[in-house]
């Protein structure tokens, strides 16, 4: 299933709706890069609230997405990482280096706005 990408002002919002396969997550990365380039977005929010697992592939994909968006002049913020997911990520040794995080969509957008100001 393709993750819908919404445009809100200068920002793009991708709300993941269900568990994603590696391929679907890679697709989301490509779609976001494509949208961000075309719409000249200033920031991107990726909502991972429904993800029950953030494994090495997901972390690597989000990190490289954030890095590439940064080169396009857009900031990335990942929102909604659940406490259990965060716990497992730490045990696994995963970090989201270079990726900003916020509690939820609202805080993510506030973060982007503050950054742009």
């Amino acid at each position: 299933m393709r993750v819908p990408i919404l445009k809100q002002g200068e920002y793009l919002i991708a709300s993941i709706q269900s568990a994603l396969t590696d391929q679907e997550l890679s697709q989301l990365k490509d779609d976001l890069l494509d949208h961000a380039g075309r719409t000249r977005a200033r920031g991107v929010v990726v909502d991972v609230t429904v993800l029950d697992v953030m494994d090495s592939f997901a972390a690597r994909t989000l990190r490289s997405l954030a890095h590439m968006l940064d080169l396009l002049g857009a900031a990335t913020v990942v929102v909604g990482i659940q406490p259990e997911v965060a716990f497992a990520m730490v045990q696994l040794g995963l970090t989201l280096e270079g990726v900003s995080t916020a509690l939820d969509l609202e805080e993510g957008l506030a973060f982007l706005q503050a950054k742009a100001a």
Partner: peptide
């Protein structure tokens, strides 16, 4: 526990 459930799912994923 919900933490262990997530931990187990993550290990399976890897």
């Amino acid at each position: 526990s919900s933490t262990d459930v997530t931990v187990i799912a993550t290990a399976i994923s890897e």
